[in-house]
Amino acid sequence: MTSTFPLEGVPHGTTIVALTYPGGVVMAGDRRATAGNMIAQRDIEKVFATDEFSVVGIAGAAGLAIELVRTFQVELEHYEKMEGAPLSVEGKANRLSTLLRSNLAMAMQGLAVVPLFAGYDPRGSNGRIFSYDVTGGRYEEHSFFAVGSGSVFARGSLKKLYRSDLTQDEAVTACVEALYDAADDDSATGGPDLFRRIYPIVVAVDGDGDRKFSESEMAEFVHRVVNARSTSPDGPTADLPTSRGDSK
């Protein structure tokens, strides 16, 4: 989300990825915010646990997006305290949709906010992902999804890495790989910065609640991915189907 915006001076966030695994969902975001072709901030956080069992990642105008998340967090907690029970996953997703729609006028002027929502659903004991458009349209995604300027590359990457039986650690690794691929081809997405120790923000939610991976935990994941890339810079490769019926 770079120079296509009329308000070039306003910082924008970039790539968010999410991936389900049996019993949960993991979401990751890069750390770059851009204002036009300038890097506005290299260690911004764009993935937030919104309550114990849900997480939101944001792409688009950073100021509005962070305010949107703050409002959303308060609303979820407020509902939970008032009613004595949390909202359902669909309830949370719908609420975010309404909040987003109230920002439509700003979006029409170029200040779009595009969140990605993921939550743990206790009814099916699984993780679920919802994507949005600027009009508040809410779409449930299956298995994995990415939003933001580098999302095209990240989604391609996730498509080749996703399996339905990933462990939580494998899911985190897949997210780091996808963000690496996004940063590789999108100038507005930041890659991991090993010297400054700036790694993607990763939050997983499952039946035990939300868990934000610490800097030292992420260092391990990132170093493993980056080391592997030193021998194969394009990352893991997928197997092609065996050719021309030469099976014996």
Binding site: R70, V74, E77, H78, K81, M82
Partner: peptide
């Protein structure tokens, strides 16, 4: 209680 929750959440926000 509800008034208290409302008071606290509004303030904190």
């Amino acid at each position: 209680r509800q008034a208290g929750v409302r008071f606290a959440d509004m303030r904190g926000f």
